[in-house]
Amino acid sequence: MDIVGERVIDAPRDRVWDALNDPEVLKACIMGCEEIEQDSETELRATVVAKFGPVKAKFKADISLEDLNPPESYRLVGQGQGGIAGFAKGGAAITLEEVEGGTKLSYNADMAIGGKLAQVGSRLIGSTTNKMINAFFDALDEHFSAGS
């Protein structure tokens, strides 16, 4: 499944880049994120509680940042285990572009899911993912408008 979109964030590109690389900001902005730890410059571990229709699970995700080209682009690659709920894995190419009104963030992600998540939740993955992405950007907007 491919997920493609973009969003303009009311903040300079450097600050958006920094925020996207700050575990504390990510933790605050990712819906259901219980903890996030940075193991190295390019490796993160996160615990996220997510609900896809009838399937709710705590996902333990390993995320790595690849092809880093600050502050313009990078690639996120991740794999999350949700126990008996199944798993999700995928990658996202992210680019930041300076535009009028702030920074345009474009993403192009592909995702594969498995287990119960795929079995009963697959028809809801798209809408749930979009909801999570929108919530993330709303929270990011709030983060910047709060001036932190």
């Binding site: 594969a112 498995g114 287990g115 119960k116 795929a118 079995q119 009963v120 697959s122 028809r123």
Partner: peptide, 14 residues
């Protein structure tokens, strides 16, 4: 089944 062996028709929804 999809190519990954996930049962796409795995509930009465599908």
């Amino acid at each position: 089944y999809d190519d990954n062996g996930q049962l796409m028709t795995g509930s009465y929804m599908d």
